[in-house]
Computed example of a mutant assay.
Amino acid sequence: MNAKQKWMIGGAFALVVVLVAAAFAWFAGSDATEPTPPVAAPRSPEPSAQGNNGATGFGDPTTDLAGRKVMIPNNPAGMILPQRDPGPRTECSTDQPTTSPGGVMIQRTFNVATLFSETDGPTTSDGNVISGYSRTPQGAALAGWNVIARSYVGGQVTVDSIRQMTVPSPELDALLDNPDREGADPKNLQSLQAPDAFRVLSCDPDFVSVEWGMKRTVDENGALPSPIWKGIRTNLLWRDGDWRAQFNRESISAGQTYSALDGTWTRWSL
């Protein structure tokens, strides 16, 4: 197993690793099937990688592996975007795909690809946590991805994000109280790009099941003749005025592999 494969397996807290490592290892080209919790001592984070410094604005942008524009906020925690009314759109529907959140921006926050929008949040950045999503499937799709992404940062960022943006459980609490969990190498985290698209599998005002499509163009043998996508799924519950992800074995999973994203998927309005 090479170094890149190892960080995908051992880069987050134990429960989150077990639940989603299969999907991220697949994305990285790993053939590992038994993810294990990290055992190394926590790394000291880079000064620029952790902590909300209150700065505004952006540095020079970059691109991800798919060539999509990625903004680099001057505040490592992220830059909240001004919000606007989305206008008429499809939200919970059984016969057509959900409309994308409006004005979506990929921001590299704490070295991971997170999603911000002009219509559905997040609207608040408090310490290490971004929150304040609209009570819509669009808001749920953004909230779910962002807490999954930040679960790979490690340290206090992951602890705060999971504590505040997931449905509490004794199992999660016990894991978050363990101080000996480290995040992935910040340089490798940048290889984890935002999903290409999402789709809503089940939806009502208090519950949304979302699947995100992760693109892969290479494997251990090199470039693939055609890209494929891996689905990652979890549930979001509306609790205490925001969407909270369910991180349990029944709710979060690496779904099936797709040769194309058909018309049931929604691509972000980047």
Rank of each mutant, 00 (worst) to 15 (best):
D60P: 04
T136L: 00
D196R: 11
D206R: 12
P137K: 02
R239M: 10
A3Q: 14
Q83P: 03
P225S: 11
L270G: 15
P61A: 08
P88N: 12
P45A: 04
I232Q: 06
A23G: 15
G127N: 11
D160H: 03
P205Y: 06
G59S: 11
V20I: 04
F247T: 04
Q50S: 13
A25G: 15
R89N: 06
D64Y: 10
S117V: 03
P82S: 10
P168S: 03
D219C: 02
T90Y: 04
P186Y: 04
S209T: 15
A149F: 01
M214P: 03
I106T: 08
Q256A: 15
E182W: 01
E250I: 08
S161V: 03
T114E: 14
D196S: 15
D185P: 00
D240W: 00
F13G: 09
W26I: 06
E182A: 10
A41Q: 13
Q156E: 13
T33E: 12
V129C: 08
T124S: 09
C92F: 02
E171V: 11
D64C: 04
P86V: 02
L65E: 11
T99L: 05
M214S: 02
A194P: 00
R244L: 02
G103W: 12
R43S: 09
L172P: 07
G144S: 05
Q193I: 12
V129E: 06
S117E: 01
L15V: 02
S169H: 03
L19E: 07
F116H: 13
G78K: 09
P97F: 04
R68L: 00
A32W: 12
T158W: 02
M105Y: 11
F27N: 14
R216K: 14
V18A: 13
R216L: 08
W26D: 14
N111Q: 15
A141Q: 05
N53V: 12
P86I: 06
D126K: 14
R216S: 08
N178A: 07
Q5M: 09
S100T: 09
W145I: 04
N146T: 04
P35A: 04
R89D: 04
V112A: 03
Q164Y: 01
A77D: 07
P45H: 00
A245F: 01
I148S: 03
R163K: 15
I162Y: 03
K4M: 06
Q83S: 13
F24Y: 10
A113F: 03
A22C: 03
A41D: 15
P186R: 01
V16C: 13
A49W: 07
M1C: 10
L270Q: 11
G154W: 01
